[in-house]
Write a protein that binds this DNA or RNA. Sequence first.
DNA 1: ACGGGGATTTTCT
DNA 2: GAAAATCCCCGTG
Length: 213
Amino acid sequence: MKVPPRRNRLPRAFYDRDPATVARELLGKALLRRSDGQWLGGLIVETEAYLSSGDLASHSARGKKRSNAAMFGPPGTLYVYPIHAKYCMNAVTQAEGIGSAVLIRAIEPVWGTPQMQANRETDDLRRTTRGPAMLCQALRVDRDFDAVDLLASDEITIASVRSEPPRIVASKRIGISSSADLMLRFFADGNWFVSGRVSDHRSRPTKPIPEKT
DNA sequence: ACGGGGATTTTCT
DNA sequence: GAAAATCCCCGTG
């Protein structure tokens, strides 16, 4: 699969909608990172929405702080936060001043896979981008990427690509204790690179056949 | 200044 | 399954 051209970048309006809708529609899109002159990335297979109100699990729930300020930025902003000495990345949704975002939890590796594995120091393809902190490590995304504009950056963006539309399953979000029953996690059913419990899937995750290049 | 907890991952049993 | 690793952030004193 070819790296999508710059014109395929998702427009601002894509992100300027409610986070649950954006989370669903991000599935199957290409997350791209330009690192040391090489494209890294793959297709988004798992996301979670975090709402601006009525969602105690959202980092925005207790107001705007220095650490979460990017989450209140314009739609299409990247919000990167640290957790347990690693990082997770979100795409900010809705208008500037509204604290909502979509956590990108997993991608199916497509571009620069050997380099992503090297970044993760693993030979196990399934443990390269399966989980939000693994993903950031594979793509070398850290706090420097907080508040970066996904529409303007030359180092990271999200683009549309010709691919099979995934069958989408919704579930409860992973690893939170407040507002835990909201069905705001979305993933490509049966995809090998989705994190969490296999029993959430409707069809058994199957190992993909590596694409010829 | 101090300390508890976190949208996680790894490694052990 | 469970616990440790590990660091940043924020509320409290």
